[in-house]
Design a protein around this nucleic acid. Structure first.
Lengths: 335, 335
DNA sequence: GTGAAAGCGCTAACAC
DNA sequence: GTGTTAGCGCTTTCAC
């Protein structure tokens, strides 16, 4: 209504309107004690009337805290990372933190995203997947960092995700079905998540005394899965494949279909992520599902504890992953 | 190295170390003129030595600007929204803005996300898809808002996205192939994007004088596409389907496969989004691809102009969408 | 119960 | 070219 709408109302304006001191407004807004009910009402009414909103910059300046968590995420619309992002935001808001995101572009690497977060002011940083272009990632800032992999740095807290466990589960499922060995289409080696899944696969193979075929390396994309799939389809010994994500599994499925190798009759395929489409592929894909909500909840709890410098519960072991069996896996054909 | 590392270094600390006034430090850091080269060097060296970083809270307090853009996004890992998010972040950083995200959960709706952004302090808000639980969305805040749909509010800038155009292109492609009509699996009616695509479909049908079959409404998920697909598969008149996104198209494909209706021989299917997996489905999916980079670039340019209150270029028409023809579409079978 | 005064780290006048 | 001063809006002592 007023035409002098250039500067948003301050707590001083609210105080003036309510006929109290500015400090009293502050007390009311922060729910501090020692304010009479009547004054409280008046202040609240004045604030509402003015459309008052706390100035977070002033607050942050004084407190030295931003109440903001920054996430350095992989700049992609991959299902895993974006699901994790959603879960992290929900949890952050839940525990009273705003949420900033910086994507690590292909070239730039994670460090540039971290720099950008630090520059804008955050109380803590989550490194969603600590890959970096070339050199070893290391975060020297004085803010707590949550990583899902051990990385060097003064205030890094780590929580386990289920990569290794997931790789193991997928492989054991296939081995349990009677396959002599399991082939692997891995994610890019630069990604810790990819290395974890491959490790789980390798460990399960070793534990079962199965031979370890060479892994194909993809880049998470269906196209790369397709390329790997063509190689595997041409090899008659291949009867079971574990792809490190569902997108690559889709490519594998396609290559197998084109080569006339029936799934699951001739070749079984397991993916990972349980993307919404997984249940509707031809055939519906057996896959591994991670609990991103649980990961986010636990990770941010750890981080919040570190921000407050409270004791901080010890890191848990790996967070759960579940095998979802559908129709892309079956026992091998009897020769 | 010092053990008194509780308060991060301020520009005063830098000034003391460099032996200049605090204001000079400010000048150097902001690249203002009238600083001798020698002093500039000294200040920069001191800043580096101390690991100095500008306190954005103090800066924002003084400037009354946060240099931060907030995005209220749909809390989901849907390919479209998350691709847009990535593009928006890249552009925001490009033009010097930090990036905050708040997801609108299923229940809460967009307004709660907007509130959360306003509370943390942003210079502008992007409403990625202005759906709201029940009531009409309306943003009364005094910050500029970028929306891809006209919504009421004092400082809303709008840019077109290609929903209508995309729906039209998909439908025309199918009609051009010789199909008598085109069935539609729409997104949730609450979503403007879904309504746009349906409108494009409807308009193209009308323009060609083709009958308009009832649309099936899905929720973007493969599961809902599958449900719609079962209905369509049972109707022998259906020879061409346009699904409002690729995920639902996947469900349609699955339903068709289970019903023994060959794609594209008996039924043609077009999706929308061009998810990475689209080219590797069985059959590879004809779809519509949006240029999210262009949308983000143009939208944020508009928004930045409004933040600066500069004239602001007029909104363009719809941004481009491209038909990507693959193997899921073909002329109808000759009866 | 409430108010006055100081100061967080920065930038914008305005001197020198 | 460089320094001084004031003040952004809030919270924190400390009076009253």
């Amino acid at each position: 209504m007023s035409d002098a709408r250039r500067r948003p109302p301050s707590s001083t304006d609210v105080a003036a309107l309510a006929g109290v001191s500015q400090k009293t407004v502050s007390r009311v807004l922060n729910g501090e004690p020692y304010v009479s009910e009547e004054v409280r009402e008046r202040v609240l009414a004045a604030a509402r009337e003015l459309g008052y909103r706390r100035n977070t910059a002033a607050r942050a300046l004084h407190l030295g805290r931003f109440h903001r968590i920054g996430v350095a995420s992989i700049g992609s619309s991959l299902y895993g990372p974006s699901s994790l992002l959603v879960a992290l935001e929900r949890q952050a808001r839940e525990i009273g933190y705003a949420f900033a995101v910086a994507y690590a572009g292909e070239g730039a690497g994670v460090m540039s995203a971290v720099e950008s977060l630090l520059a804008q002011g955050v109380d803590a940083i989550v490194v969603s997947d600590p890959i970096d272009g070339s050199q070893e990632l290391r975060i020297d800032a004085d803010v707590p960092v949550l990583s899902f992999r051990p990385i060097p740095g003064p205030r890094v807290v780590v929580t386990g995700v289920s990569g290794v466990e997931a790789g193991r589960q997928a492989t054991e499922h296939l081995l349990g079905l009677g396959h002599a060995s399991v082939w692997h289409v891995a994610g890019p080696h630069r990604w810790p998540a990819a290395r974890d899944r491959a490790r789980g696969w390798r460990e399960a193979l070793a534990a079962a005394g199965a031979p370890e075929p060479p892994a194909q390396e993809g880049d998470w994309s269906p196209a790369s899965g397709y390329a790997a799939g063509r190689v595997l389809a041409a090899d008659p010994r291949v009867t079971a494949v574990f792809a490190a994500n569902d997108d690559m599994a889709i490519g594998v499925l396609r290559a197998l279909a084109e080569a006339g190798r029936a799934v699951p009759e001739e070749v079984s395929v397991v993916g990972m992520d349980d993307i919404p489409a997984a249940a509707y592929l031809s055939p519906p894909l057996t896959t591994i599902r991670q609990d991103f909500e649980a990961i986010a909840r636990h990770g941010l709890a750890l981080l919040a504890a570190e921000i407050e410098r409270s004791p901080g519960e010890p890191a848990l072991g790996d967070l759960p992953a579940h095998l979802v069996v559908r129709r892309s896996t079956a026992p091998p054909a009897k020769p």
